[in-house]
Design a protein around this nucleic acid. Sequence first.
DNA 1: CAATATACTTTGATTACTCAAAGTTCTCAT
DNA 2: ATGAGAACTTTGAGTAATCAAAGTATATTG
Lengths: 219, 219
Amino acid sequence: MPTSTVENYLKQILIVSLETNCPEVPMGKVAQGLSVTSGTATTMFKNLAENGWLHYYPRRGVRLTRKGKALAMNMLRRHRLLETFLVETLGLDWSEIHQEAEELEHAISEKVLEKLDEFLGRPRQDPHGHPIPSRGGVIRRSSTQSLLSCKAGSKVTIESITDQESDFLKFARKKQLFPGQVVSVLSHEKLADAITLQVGGAAPFSLGSRSSEKILVQA
Amino acid sequence: MPTSTVENYLKQILIVSLETNCPEVPMGKVAQGLSVTSGTATTMFKNLAENGWLHYYPRRGVRLTRKGKALAMNMLRRHRLLETFLVETLGLDWSEIHQEAEELEHAISEKVLEKLDEFLGRPRQDPHGHPIPSRGGVIRRSSTQSLLSCKAGSKVTIESITDQESDFLKFARKKQLFPGQVVSVLSHEKLADAITLQVGGAAPFSLGSRSSEKILVQA
DNA sequence: CAATATACTTTGATTACTCAAAGTTCTCAT
DNA sequence: ATGAGAACTTTGAGTAATCAAAGTATATTG
Ligand SMILES: [Mn+2]
Ligand SMILES: [Mn+2]
Ligand SMILES: [Mn+2]
Ligand SMILES: [Mn+2]
């Protein structure tokens, strides 16, 4: 049985590889995502490789094995189903559910997970708009476009918010930036590093590149 | 923050002290209940004492401090609310929920617990008939009478089943032995170490002392 | 009261993480 | 091509939890 630490590493590796569209993930991204030192992650990588979860190519990165990817997908499924449960059933705010799910995902059994999925009506995305992997480990491909890549004058629909920070999510909700919302891009200044948006009938406002990158959209 | 190991030790100590009606709990009962060696429990006791969770009286036992008892009661509350959720909301069988709750109790936050309690309608007992402590750590006193202490000819109501073993619970359900059921004690042979029961219109059957001790009843 | 059994404690070792700090390799810009 | 900096690895040490086995105190019982 994998420990919860192993589960967290594998899930983080999968998340980075989905984000970058590349199966090989550098050590630094994983260490940063898990808030551990680089030495810790290196040591762990050797361990994970020894146990068949991934291939470790020193100074180049890691790549999940079939077994590692299956576990990582399952963790993503757990995490996102739990987030959905916390919002839909218990009524928690979407800005506070990530940390809760981060713990619960390791404690829930396959049996309870299945019952939960059934209870929720087999949802296909979580409250942040992220796709929920199927029981077999298949996941819908996410959009490759963020608000940052939108031209002035375009009108797009928000697919997901890729930041789990409570403060950012609270801000996003206040500005009506959540999955399903339609956004008009009023201007996009490459040099000023900012875009100006309008959502619904509310007053227009601007986002920097850091923030607009976090919002994935569909043309 | 206490680790989940600390939480398990304190909860186990509380359970034994409630069962025996005595605040001082011997090391052996705790080690056995947690399936660790006696040396491990001794080492842990010194640790728990150093951190103010309990008083340790070498070779006599331990006694929870106010702080330790508060945490232990909270763990019992978590455990029993989770068991209730697993049966009432997700529809798991009462014979399989204990192990699930044993993990989940450490992963759930106070905030989620409160929402869960509200969602469940503030239940006062779990599926095995055990009282659920209030948020303030107050618990209903359990019955002191078990089926073993019942005289032949008496008719009693089952309050709770004090064994969490899946196999025993499956057997109990099959024999209609669960909280709320009315049982007639047909005979009680002290020397043969057995009682004969009848529940509802079903055929009478016998229980040994080991088993009948596990079923608490109200006159 | 002594001998024995029971309950408990101590000791030394192991596992699974973690960090800080020192060392190594690789990349890239001059 | 070289030297500076980034990215990565190694080393040594610490924490929390566990066990087996040896040692000690207390209770039971002949
Ligand atoms: Mn996690
Ligand atoms: Mn999410
Ligand atoms: Mn537990
Ligand atoms: Mn119970």
